[in-house]
Amino acid sequence: MPVTDFTSNPDTRTITITAEFDAPVERVWALYADPRQLERVFGPPSHPATFVQHDLTVGAETRYYMTSPEGEKYPGVWTITAVDEPHSFSFEDAFADEQFRVNADLPVCMSTYSFEPQGERTRAVFVSTFASAEALQQVIDMGVEEGSISAINQIDGVLAA
């Protein structure tokens, strides 16, 4: 499985996920840059993602939702803050309502996805930083560990296709 480590740290208010993919950095970047590929792996298998807007350009907004088995939709918004193709991108990650307005009642985090070449493989490090330890705990309680690991572990299958 690609995920090799999941760590949450209340002192630094971070979640760090490390994964290794059986593909070069450029191929992994292409998956994250293409909304049709990304939606195949962003949500856990039980909650697939649909990206309605996606652009890895500084200042751009990505809009998506995940759909539960019962058909309930969970929207989210990324605001892209930095891009270093094909090595990393950073974004503000927020829960949203059906019109993709940020939901102020749920945690917002700053995330950086980094991709490091390891020969013909790629080491990915996903870091999310929260405003408070309470916000971090809230997403932990929502199941972010299980959901993230199951989503990321789908990536090798898409990269190989």
Rank of each mutant, 00 (worst) to 15 (best):
D55W: 07
Q53A: 15
T112E: 09
T122S: 09
G59S: 07
Q53I: 07
S68K: 10
D84P: 01
C109S: 15
Y64L: 11
K73W: 15
R36D: 11
F89S: 00
E92P: 04
N103R: 03
T14N: 04
M66V: 01
T12C: 09
I15Y: 05
P44E: 03
R101Y: 04
V25T: 13
P48E: 09
D84A: 04
E39W: 02
E61W: 05
G71W: 10
R13S: 03
P24W: 12
I17Y: 08
Q37R: 09
Y65C: 02
E72M: 14
V77M: 04
A33Y: 02
G76E: 01
R123C: 08
A82W: 13
A104M: 11
T112C: 06
H47W: 14
E72V: 15
S111L: 11
G119F: 14
T50E: 07
I80R: 01
L56P: 01
R101P: 02
R36M: 12
D22K: 08
D105W: 06
W29V: 00
C109G: 06
E72G: 10
F95H: 05
T122V: 07
A82D: 14
D105C: 10
V58Y: 13
P45N: 06
S46L: 07
S111V: 15
N103H: 11
Y64P: 00
G119H: 12
A19Q: 05
A82K: 14
S46G: 03
H47P: 03
V125S: 00
P48Y: 06
